[in-house]
């Protein structure tokens, strides 16, 4: 086990040498690269990375450029998790045979995927990796839509959101079904660590990522990634939207250890009404018409219910 990087405060964190480069083609104000930087800077160990097809992949590997300073591979839409799982299996096998050239180095295996590649298309592959117990970390950059291809709905798109395949208009209020609870699904695999993170809470994020690197076995991280293009807000507001998401408890930050030990890691001092979170984004603009106001009320009830559930579960340790 290599020693964990010590990060007590932001000043200390800022001495990290970035392994992700600028001049990638992500939109100005995209949260993807903020999350990626926080993850990569959380460790000094070597990294073996992969990315599923999605914004992150197409924008950081545009011929003839790459924005990654670590080994990075892209194969298909569905298999970022299995790509690093394969690399991890090979690493383990070579280690066992004593054929590693630098056996003292402890590379970390991380796969990045969007919500489309994790909630829908790569779901079976990720589930397989979790079940087989590879020592990898899968990170979902959850922007609740297929942003790369023009904003089609994914199973992460929440009720009432206007997406190109579920547009809001005269007859519809947009997406009809609620978001899939992927964190609970992954926790049900009884893997060592599952957590939900947000880029605006960098310390919570780094702590969880380091915990994830320290444990042996598969780790699943769901990161909210506000999308300036598809959520329709000004690029400068990315962090404000992330703040609203965590403070309104639409995206509660918690972790589940070994599939049962649930800890809430962030309790907002002032809980913001869900209405404020919705009002800040163009994709929910139509919900403020009189005929759809009931959806906002329902949304608030859903968030409250989820928060109460998480608190009960934390208390009961089940």
């Amino acid at each position: 086990m290599s020693e964990m990087k010590k990060i007590k405060n932001l000043k200390e964190f800022s001495t990290s040498a970035d392994r992700f480069e600028g001049a990638n083609l992500l939109c100005p104000g995209c949260a993807h690269s903020i999350i990626v930087r926080e993850v990569l800077n959380a460790t000094n160990d070597d990294l073996i990375l992969s990315a599923s097809t999605g914004c992150l992949e197409v924008c950081t590997a545009v011929y003839p450029y790459t924005s990654w300073d670590a080994s990075w591979i892209h194969i298909g839409f569905e298999n970022s998790s299995t790509a690093v799982a394969g690399a991890e299996s090979m690493y383990k096998a070579l280690k066992k045979k004593g054929r590693l050239k630098q056996p003292d180095r402890n590379p970390k295996f991380v796969s990045f995927a969007g919500d489309g590649a994790s909630y829908d298309i790569g779901f079976q592959w990720i589930s397989g990796c979790m079940e087989r117990g590879h020592n990898i970390m899968h990170i979902v950059l959850d922007n609740e839509v297929y942003a790369n291809t023009g904003g089609q709905r994914s199973s992460s798109t929440p009720i009432g959101s206007s997406a190109t395949t579920s547009p809001a208009g005269r007859v519809s209020y947009g997406e009809k079904r609620n978001k899939k609870d992927i964190v609970s699904i992954m926790a049900a695999h009884n893997i060592p660590y599952v957590a939900q993170v947000a880029p605006n809470k960098w310390k919570d994020m780094v702590k969880k990522i380091q915990h994830g690197f320290a444990v042996e076995g598969p780790v699943f991280i769901n990161a909210v990634s506000p999308c300036t293009t598809e959520w329709k807000f000004d690029p400068k507001d990315t962090m404000n939207i992330a703040d609203l998401a965590t403070d309104s408890l639409v995206f509660p930050l918690y972790e589940i250890i070994d599939g049962h030990e649930l800890n809430i890691t962030y309790r907002p001092k002032n809980i913001v009404p869900v209405e404020e979170y919705l009002a800040a984004q163009g994709r929910f603009k139509h919900l403020f018409k009189d005929e759809y106001k009931y959806l906002i009320k329902e949304w608030q009830e859903r968030v409250d219910e989820k928060w109460a559930y998480l608190q009960r579960r934390e208390e009961a340790r089940v």
Partner: peptide, 27 residues
């Protein structure tokens, strides 16, 4: 920490400037 484009240059815990080649002006 919140710069998406690795454009804020910090050395020895001090901010020393903005990398204008990589900044996209998101604000």
């Amino acid at each position: 920490v919140y710069c998406p484009d690795v454009s804020i240059i910090s050395r020895d815990k001090k901010l020393i400037g903005v990398d204008m080649d990589h900044c996209k002006g998101c604000g």
